[in-house]
Nucleic acid binder design. Structure first.
Lengths: 340, 340
DNA sequence: CCGTCCGATTGAAATGATTCAAACAGCGAC
DNA sequence: GTCGCTGTTTGAATCATTTCAATCGGACGG
């Protein structure tokens, strides 16, 4: 029942604790025969190292913190998975935290992670400048921003170009002959919404259409299916029915789509719809949804890679601000569906 | 830049390190005035405790390990979220690991978690008896099985009754007048599939229908939408078209549904379909899917609660084997959809 | 044969919070 | 004035590993 420690291994193998430690950490410096003897002893006793002691001495653990808004959101789930995969092959382990868009929860997590002596933190911060986050970097913990472009050049970040994404969606609709786009979006305070909107305006400008006539906006309080339904009701009842709708995310789009179909509107013949995110249900929606896909897994992957590079090679590490490009996935809400 | 430790706080507050530690861990034993002085010093120096030291001394950290097959699967995502929420309010933190159904990855994770001196491990084991898992319990780490009923009474487990779930689905279809059910399922080696199948047979038996005529089975290699499509193709082409289909999970059901609709089959008028899991896209599928819902978040929640109870009150903790009951969610694939 | 050098091994210091027995201060009772 | 009690505070031992300077043993060159 008693924990077997490095000392027990040393005794059994007839060497000093220092040697056992060497076998564990720099096997190349210990003679092959002793190494074997030690490894045998480790196996016999079922020894597993106590990383707490190592962490205490080194001042940092092989743990990464990942703080996202909510893992339940597939966007973050994929990021988490990407980060975890990279961590795993590099011998790191990931502590996952949900901030639920609360500064308090976020701050609390950052404190706990600092207590844990994590090597680094991957985070989608709730707000751009967090005291706790700065403090964390001050004590030498690396931080990589996820889904947020870094302000300065003093840290790494991995984000997706939301302006380009909005532009992609708008250009697609404009290219199909529309000259007015109805943008169903969340509050402008949400950066993603604002950026995607900016993309739409850019596309309109490029097409020579003034925003005043080309952009109709419909702001909903939350970015979920229920809000989408509500928006759909209003749009159906409105006197001037839209022909081209771009929703700031797929959940909104699915909600809108349902209401329109139920009201007898034909999609895409009467109304075209473009979503954003390419969540799994986008493909299996009532009418497969045209949407903008973001390289989510890639983001988590890249973020963790940058982090680990920074941790392991701090001297020759240049901070990078990665900006991924989204892609348009054309399905049946913007073109005739295949004959049934 | 240098780490501020408990010593620095003690010096600034003019007390001993022991007192500072007391302020942190048992504030009630230290006089109010000294406590304030110490708290002030902590604030001024921005001190955060180094939990590695505590872990080293205590032999366990306030960290839980959570090992699931794949967080990307919404089933596990919800479990993770449930567990995380409970951990968070109890001052614990969760290390998340994906085993990808690989014994090696699982075993590797368990070793790393043991190295981290985790207080406990929540796990959906790939196989029922893992050496590493037993070893973990041998060294005194509590283990709670998730989505697996414990074999003995020597550990906690939280699972859902898959037999009941299968039965629920089958009874629903039988109650709608069918006397033959086509069960689209993964390999029988997957316990969930086998259990759900057993539920179907139980329902048939209860209805007095021999399994030989009442149960048609269709085994697919993987439990995803693509497999569902493949199954759908076969079913459509088959000479005797099924009238009632029960799919072992929603992804299969969505795949089958798409193919049927594309082939001009009317759902639910010609064919009824029941899925399993109630994934988010079930509701927004081409035709909202009737399915069996599992209390996933609840499972994670309960698992973490059991774990923490066991960790904090090991003396009066009785191991529990929780079996949650699934519920049937009736939507439009088994009854006439509302008029459009 | 002695000195030197090199690779292998050792032993002990260091890491930072916790905890517990012991010291201490203050106060009331006798 | 002393004893004892209570409520605070202290200081040192403890946890397991890492790391580095020191040591050891052997080989090789002079």
């Amino acid at each position: 029942m008693r924990r077997v420690g490095i000392k027990d291994v040393a005794r059994l193998a007839g060497v000093s604790v220092g040697t056992v430690s060497h076998v564990l950490n720099r096997p190349e410096v210990v003679a092959a025969t002793t190494r074997q003897r030690v490894e045998q002893a480790i196996g016999e006793l079922g020894f597993v190292r106590n990383s707490a002691a190592g962490t205490l001495r080194a001042g940092r653990s092989k743990v990464l913190g990942l703080v996202v808004m909510d893992v339940t959101n597939p966007f973050y789930t994929d990021i988490a998975r990407g980060a975890e995969d990279v961590a795993q092959v590099n011998g790191y382990v990931v502590i996952l935290g949900n901030s639920d868009e609360s500064d308090d929860k976020e701050s609390n997590y950052l404190r706990v992670l600092q207590e844990q002596q994590v090597a680094g933190v991957l985070i989608t911060p709730v707000h751009d400048d967090s005291t706790r986050l700065r403090q964390l970097r001050d004590v030498g913990t690396s931080v990589v921003l996820v889904d947020r472009p870094a302000q300065g050049v003093d840290q790494c970040s991995v984000a997706v170009d939301n302006v380009a994404g909005g532009r992609l969606a708008a250009e697609h609709l404009l290219g199909l002959g529309h000259d007015e786009i109805t943008f169903v979006t969340g509050p402008a305070a949400i950066r993603q919404c604002a950026d995607r909107r900016a993309g739409v305006k850019a596309a309109l400008r490029a097409a020579g259409i003034p925003a005043a006539t080309g952009l109709r906006e419909f702001v909903v309080p939350a970015m979920n299916t229920a809000s989408g339904r509500a928006a759909g009701e209003k749009l159906v009842q409105g006197k001037r029915r839209p022909r081209a709708i771009f929703c700031a995310n797929d959940l909104l789009a699915v909600g809108v789509l349902h209401v329109l179909l139920r009201a007898g509107v034909r999609v895409p013949e009467d109304v075209m719809i473009v979503g954003y995110d390419d969540i799994t249900s986008a493909e299996s929606a009532a009418i497969p949804l045209t949407t903008v896909r973001q390289p989510t897994y890639q983001m988590g992957h890249m973020a963790a890679e940058l982090m680990i590079a920074e941790c392991e090679q701090p001297q020759h590490h240049a901070h990078q601000q990665i900006l991924f490009q989204p892609t348009l996935v054309v399905r049946s809400t913007t073109k005739a569906s295949p004959p049934r």
